[in-house]
Design a protein around this nucleic acid. Sequence first.
DNA 1: CGTTCGCTTGAACTAATTCAAGATAAGTGG
DNA 2: CCACTTATCTTGAATTAGTTCAAGCGAACG
Lengths: 228, 228
Amino acid sequence: MHHDLLRRCTYFTDLPDVILTAAASAAQVRRVLGGEFFFHQGDPASHFYVLAEGNARLSQITPEGRQIIMGLIGPSHEIGIIAAIAGAVYPLDLQAIQDSLALTWDRATLRTLFDAHPVLALRALHMVSARFVELQDRYRELATERVERRLARAILRLVAQVGQPASDGVTIALPLARQDLAELTGTTLFTVSRTLSAWENVGIVRSGRERVTLCDPERLTAIAEDLP
Amino acid sequence: MHHDLLRRCTYFTDLPDVILTAAASAAQVRRVLGGEFFFHQGDPASHFYVLAEGNARLSQITPEGRQIIMGLIGPSHEIGIIAAIAGAVYPLDLQAIQDSLALTWDRATLRTLFDAHPVLALRALHMVSARFVELQDRYRELATERVERRLARAILRLVAQVGQPASDGVTIALPLARQDLAELTGTTLFTVSRTLSAWENVGIVRSGRERVTLCDPERLTAIAEDLP
DNA sequence: CGTTCGCTTGAACTAATTCAAGATAAGTGG
DNA sequence: CCACTTATCTTGAATTAGTTCAAGCGAACG
């Protein structure tokens, strides 16, 4: 039921039932196959999405054709509230990693909801502000910290987001290549490979083809936070 | 007159007079001396500001005590709309560079204005979204581009923002030390100094103690955009 | 069973940092 | 007005984190 999905998003959480119902019943459903795109960078921002099933990658292409990953998202994550703004374009690509399902609202519907329930506009402001602060922190991280630490944080973030318990730790439940981790942390696949190998040698992680398992969260946190 | 100042901010521009008047008459005035802070990182976000006179620096301190500059702002720039959100804290410092004057609204006032004129909430969303996209671009820049190019862009941005015509080019009308440029571009003051010296030798800029003059915008743009 | 794709590792290289020393310029107080 | 002090800037030399390139390994997949 859409209603329950919405209740789990931070955007809709704790709102009165009447608003949830209004939003849920105004939603469209969109299915996107793994590898396909919800939208591309530069497309007119027409729809706001809440991911229901699957996983997706937020990425940007540099003018030179180099790709960087701005984030990886899973169910109940909201994307594209910029669609509420007339004339806006999406600032990045949203690509499904696995077959995915999303609820979606177009601008007119969104505006109707905002007009009926002004709290939704404030919530949108809240959401973008929170993302802004997060991005600011990652910016600072990129400007001031070494690759090993950035990679440690990226893995801790991913484990928190999409971790699945495994026999010897927690596995990141996404096919995640070295190249992806490199684009996520602003480095090269070689450096990622070397770093993961070093960590594996001391038992912090286990990793293989497009897969990383975190075995020793304490020690990885120590690296991320620069503790003893 | 406050009304005119507001008309020049992108946040208020093109709004009906009645809204501008409502906003202007609800504003408080705050004066801050050069070097003093409007607010600190971590303070409860109580006020939204529009800078009227002076210049200010947006900066963050890392847990290790290293500072990075997120931006430099001048008159008619809006800061701190996060104050509209209950429980939020400022994510960075805002420090006056010169004696400054700002219009300011506290949360209750802001909410009253939002209720009376819902377009203001949408505008807030618009503003934060625009800043978000800008920051994303700078993030990509930091992740993928070399220091020289980042510095070139930073200087072009500053010239556009606070440039003042001079005899031999356009001067950045701010006391701006090498260290400031380093913190703005994610590098060290030494690298900034070397790069500016190299540029000065080929006539792209002239620079001295806390001062940079851009003499050849075309060539600096060529560096920023990686043209021939 | 061979081909493909992702991963690893070594070696050379480089952009940028770090550290040190000195030069230059701007106040400050006698 | 000049010496003193302080802050900013420059430059060189050594170092290093990370990149780039090349070669080869190994698991997945048709």
